[in-house]
């Protein structure tokens, strides 16, 4: 284990996960399709997961990896709920464009 970690410096993980996270944020901001937004959120979550694993491995403490499992479970549940909502939205509006969902105002 120690060996591999040393091969890839921590900074690279940081850069990669920041890149992925920003990608996710951009996706959420730019895309209108709810499914893609959901996927982008998953992307952000996973970038954080990766960071957790990396730190966990570098510090030799397994707490981070436990967290990751926890997050993956939550994310799965979230996807299930989110997709259910999306299906319901699609049935109602015939579209998954989130700009149509602007009833919650004023």
């Amino acid at each position: 284990m120690e060996h591999t970690t040393q091969l890839v410096p921590l900074n690279w993980y940081l850069l990669l996960s920041t890149f992925l996270f920003c990608l996710g944020v951009m996706g959420v901001l730019i895309r209108r399709n709810a499914i893609i937004i959901l996927m982008c959120i998953e992307l952000m979550l996973n970038s954080v997961n990766m960071l957790l694993v990396a730190f966990s491995s570098y510090s030799g403490n397994s707490d981070g990896q436990v967290f990751v499992f926890f997050i993956m479970v939550v994310a799965a549940a979230e996807v299930a709920v989110g997709l259910a909502l999306l299906v319901s939205i699609y049935r109602n509006l015939g579209s998954t464009d989130i700009d149509l969902l602007n009833k919650l105002k004023w």
């Binding site: 944020v25 959420v28 901001l29 209108r32 989130i98 969902l101 602007n102 009833k103 919650l104 105002k105």
Partner: peptide, 17 residues
């Protein structure tokens, strides 16, 4: 001020970011 609450999720997220 309530006019700023446009109901558009994108705006909210942008503001948050």
């Amino acid at each position: 001020l309530r006019l700023s609450q446009g109901g558009n999720t994108g705006t909210y997220v942008l503001a948050m970011v």
